[in-house]
Design a protein around this nucleic acid. Structure first.
Length: 286
DNA sequence: CACCATGTTCCTTG
DNA sequence: CCAAGGAACATGGT
């Protein structure tokens, strides 16, 4: 599920559902997802605590709660990893096979399910410290990227995945943003011209905003065990006002050999740092 | 069986 | 100290 737009859509979905709900109990079925927090510590902190809000930073979900003992605020940091999902279900529903953490909210369970267990649900907030700028902030512009790019010899596609450069872009939207900015993914970061850096910033913002806009039009109540056949858990059902599925909105990602929407040249796939990159060799020239 | 997968961190090498 | 590359993490789909 997990790049910035998917997390943003999930946060907007969860926030009203969790607000003012009290955690009655905590079940940790996979200790690795709460690390370095330990089970007793998490239970002590969460039992009786009430959700006050949910926000997002990069690909992280930040759950804000008020402690049961003294009402003091504290946060839990969530991350979906590669395969994480978070949702509420009535307590009567059977638990998914890979439900890693389950919060008893009274009538419902809040479930963090994660098949591959790369995700997190932890009291350790330190991963937030090293993140770069939020690409959707008003202040985000090429002034913030240019100095860092000027120092890097890495291909721009690889550099875009660096969460210290910009926080929240993943493998899908890196390819999509470069296509929209007509920049070759292979181009060394320091070789981008100022106009290209500006175009890239614009493309990043557009591609992320569009993904949020389309994702947010679709309901998000997905219990575990389904939809394993699609990239995302929303936007995959065509509707009257949105006849294209979400995946079809991706112009290059996972479209090797499909014709480019601009020029019909077959989209190519290359591998950078062990990850797939998709681009149009005609539109995205060096 | 082989290969691929939306992410992050750790280790090694230069 | 830093940049860069690759493996590791764990499971499932094709």
């Amino acid at each position: 599920m997990p790049e910035l737009p998917e997390v943003e859509v999930l946060v907007r979905h969860l926030a009203p559902l969790l607000k003012n709900r009290t955690v009655e109990n905590v079940l940790v079925r996979r200790e690795r997802v709460i690390r370095p927090t330990r089970v007793p510590q998490l239970k002590r902190k969460l039992r009786g605590a009430a959700f006050r809000g949910v926000s997002r930073r990069a690909k992280f979900l930040v759950f804000n709660l008020a402690s049961a003992s003294n009402g003091k605020p504290f946060s839990v940091l969530g991350h979906l990893g590669m395969s994480g999902r978070m949702y509420l279900l009535p307590k009567s529903a059977p638990l998914a096979k890979h439900a890693a953490v389950v919060l008893d909210l009274g009538d419902d369970h809040f479930i963090f399910e994660d098949t591959r267990y790369f995700g997190r649900f932890t009291l350790d907030l330190s991963p937030l410290e090293s993140l770069g700028p939020e690409p959707l902030d008003r202040s985000f512009c090429s002034d913030q990227l240019a100095p860092a790019l000027a120092k890097s010899t890495q291909p721009i596609k690889v550099k875009l995945l660096d969460q210290q450069l910009v926080a929240g872009i993943g493998n899908i939207y890196a390819s999509e943003a470069l296509f929209r900015a007509r920049i070759s993914p292979k181009r060394p970061a320091r070789k981008l011209k100022p106009a290209q850096v500006a175009a890239l910033c614009h493309a990043i913002r557009e591609v992320l905003e569009e993904a949020i806009r389309f994702g947010s039009t679709v309901p998000l109540n997905f219990p575990g065990g389904r939809r394993s056949d699609s990239l995302f858990y929303y936007g995959t059902q065509p509707s009257a006002e949105n006849p294209r599925t979400y995946e079809e909105r991706l112009l290059v990602y996972d479209r090797e050999n499909h014709p480019c929407v601009n020029c019909s040249t077959p989209i190519r796939r290359i591998v950078h740092a062990a990850r797939s990159t998709f681009f149009c060799p005609t539109c995205q020239t060096k």
